[in-house]
């Protein structure tokens, strides 16, 4: 007779896999990528392709020749990191910088900790922040949307709404004049503004979020906590003095908030495990983002906010445990 398989229960599996999750994230990023190509043209394509290829290549090389293990590039996580890194870069950035960013993201951010699942920080953000600090000029010159579709390095540049805001407040311009310079809410929602490759089109990022929620790749907790806390915090500020602080909607639609909340903060290995922890983590990101945006030196703070909260994840995991079954009644009796 044929040898029967014996294993401990359970004997069936959901069929979920690392690949399904990773490629699911890639699919969820397609609308944002399409929007990026629509607004920034060939620049967006060149940056994304370079970044993905570089990330995959670095992961392969490190895995093969330094760690001497079978390559892991097929699991799709390097592709996700590559796209996310590209989404965080201006579309007129020189190729060399993208490759440096990819090397830092994969090498320092991910593989030095042991690869997928072990990295305490979001690799793409490690790459992005490294570039932002090392090459501040190249990293903060943003091509104008639509106008510069057919140019890459020589694209005409402009400011992002957030930098217009920061600039205006520093130079002491009247708030109404500053507001007149930034695009309308509808434009912001659709993505007609300067910014990094993937962060501009709010509507496209929202589609990605819905896709990931439907496919159960992520849960709602982190994105909702980040966005909600930003809305509440900026809303309070706006109510206190609407002539000094922009409206919550402006904060929601500008900069990398949506990209960060939906795709960066939800990175599996650098986010907490329990839902209560996820909410604390999300609120932390939201609050730090607003602090940097409103009072910090940088116009945008989501990248730093996520990296700072990443550092707290082990602590959050230690103290924020899921609610145990049976605590409900015990609490009632006590």
């Amino acid at each position: 007779m044929k040898r029967l398989i014996v294993s401990p229960s359970p004997h069936v599996h959901s069929g979920d896999s690392v690949k399904k999750n990773m490629y699911g994230v890639v699919i969820a990023m397609i609308p944002a990528l399409a929007a990026s190509v629509w607004f920034f043209g060939i620049g967006a394509l060149v940056v994304t392709l370079t970044s993905v290829l570089a990330c995959v290549l670095f992961e392969h090389l490190i895995q093969r020749f330094i760690l001497k293990k079978p390559t892991t590039i097929t699991d799709g996580s390097a592709i996700v990191t590559g796209i996310l890194l590209a989404f965080n870069l201006p579309t007129n950035i020189p190729l060399a910088l993208i490759i440096i960013g990819a090397a830092v993201a994969i090498g320092m951010g991910k593989m030095s900790f042991g690869g997928l699942g072990q990295n305490p920080f979001n690799p793409a953000l490690v790459g992005r922040v490294f570039l932002l600090i090392s090459y501040p000029v190249q990293m903060t010159s943003w091509p104008k949307p639509i106008d510069s579709r057919f140019s890459y390095l020589d694209a005409e540049t402009g400011a992002t709404p957030l930098s217009i805001m920061k600039e205006g407040l520093i130079t002491g311009k009247p708030f109404s004049e500053v507001l007149a310079e930034v695009p309308s809410y509808l434009e912001l929602f659709l993505g007609v503004m300067g910014g990094s490759a993937g962060e501009i089109a709010g509507v496209a990022l929202m589609i990605g979020l819905i896709y990931m929620l439907v496919k159960k790749i992520i849960t709602w907790h982190i994105p909702v906590a980040v966005i909600g806390s930003v809305l509440v915090f900026t809303g309070v500020l706006h109510l206190v003095d609407s002539n000094a602080y922009a409206s919550p909607l402006f904060h929601l639609l500008t900069g990398g908030l949506l990209l960060g909340a939906i795709f960066m903060a939800t990175d599996y290995s650098s986010s907490p495990m329990a839902t209560s922890g996820m909410i604390l983590y999300g609120v932390g990101i939201g609050v730090i983002t607003v602090l940097i945006r409103v009072w910090g030196a940088y116009p945008e703070g989501i990248s730093f906010a996520i990296l700072i909260m990443n550092a707290f994840v082990p602590l959050i995991d230690k103290y924020m445990k899921p609610k145990h079954f049976g605590e409900k009644v015990a609490a009632k009796k006590a």
């Binding site: 040898r3 029967l4 398989i5 014996v6 294993s7 401990p8």
Partner: peptide, 22 residues
């Protein structure tokens, strides 16, 4: 000769707790 095919956590502790072995 093996009579079954064990698939599960690859440690003797788990196998022996589960059944007599392969």
């Amino acid at each position: 000769p093996k009579t079954t095919n064990y698939q599960g956590a690859q440690t003797c502790a788990v196998v022996s707790a589960l059944y007599g072995g392969e």
